[in-house]
């Protein structure tokens, strides 16, 4: 079944049930997204992808709203642009986005989101942020929730959408809401199995490999000198694809392509972290 909808005045026909986001992208229209990922079901919480829909009192999230016959959509009206700018401003003023994906940083410029508008005078408390100490609890990866936009992706990836471990959830509510293990237990004592799937989906650098964290903290992280090599995980017969990011011949991050038909971007502890052997010299003595 196809549906005819109108996007920015142009009629187009899409298959019923596709999201407005895909419909727009098919038309070559760029819409920002933060909480949306192609390998996870939409949670529509960031609201940066909103569009205007005739007959709707409020804007609608394009990432989850399905196209239906006769819909009339505006993707870049002033009203839409204002909400997007504000969403980006609200995030940029409360979260450290400096290690975010390039897209996100690009939209902040494009929409002229100015987080400094939310700062206070000297006589008042500074505006609230989500700043908190970095969680360095093991040698594999680091959790820095000062950089968390609460996109829910890691919770989905740890749960039924990939890993089925449920080591983390959203805890507390409102502005205090944060990703957490039970009672904020340290990761090694939690149910975490170190598959790293949460790292793979995090858009803001809140979850990163310890190798990457250390290089960045030392000011030695240098993307220009890095290489990405695609290979197949050697551990078992499933055939997950790996993307090994290296700097100075050292693996600094392991990801998996989200469009790969076997792994859908998700791996296990071996593929994700078991790369130490790559640099181990063969033991020639024995």
């Amino acid at each position: 079944m196809t549906a005819t909808i109108k996007i920015n005045g142009e009629e187009c026909s899409v298959s019923e049930g596709t999201t407005l986001l895909s419909a727009c992208r098919e038309q070559g229209i760029d819409i920002p997204t933060i909480c949306n990922a192609e390998n996870l079901s939409p949670v529509n919480t960031c609201r940066v992808c909103v569009v205007e829909m005739e007959g709707s009192r409020t804007l609608v999230p394009s990432c989850s709203r399905q196209a239906a016959e006769g819909m009339v959509i505006a993707t870049h009206s002033d009203r839409v642009r204002r909400s997007r700018r504000m969403v980006l401003e609200l995030l940029a003023s409360s979260v450290d986005l400096s290690r975010s994906e390039a897209d996100l940083l690009g939209w902040i410029d494009e929409y002229e989101a100015d987080s400094s508008r939310h700062s206070s005078g000297d006589n008042l408390d500074p505006p609230a942020t989500v700043a908190q100490p970095v969680k360095l609890q093991d040698s594999l990866y680091v959790r820095d929730y000062s950089r968390c936009v609460l996109c829910y992706k890691c919770v989905q990836a740890c749960g039924e959408e990939a890993q089925n471990t449920f080591a983390i959830s959203v805890a507390d509510r409102g502005f205090a809401a944060t990703i957490s293990t039970e009672f904020d237990t340290a990761l090694p004592d939690s149910a975490c199995v170190y598959c790293g799937n949460c790292i793979g989906v995090c858009p803001t650098g809140a979850l990163i490999f310890t190798t990457e964290f250390e290089l960045r903290e030392a000011g030695e992280w240098n993307e220009e000198q890095q290489k990405v090599t695609r290979t197949v995980c050697p551990y078992c017969g499933v055939g997950c694809n790996l993307e090994l990011r290296t700097q100075d011949e050292t693996i600094v991050r392991v990801t998996s392509p989200s469009d790969h038909e076997v792994s859908h971007g998700h791996l296990c502890i071996k593929g994700r972290f078991g790369t130490g052997f790559v640099k181990t010299e063969p033991d020639t003595e024995s």
Partner: peptide
């Protein structure tokens, strides 16, 4: 009282 799920309300109510 914001549940904290979406950005406009989670951060907007605080701002």
């Amino acid at each position: 009282e914001s549940c904290g799920q979406c950005v406009p309300c989670r951060v907007g109510t605080v701002r």
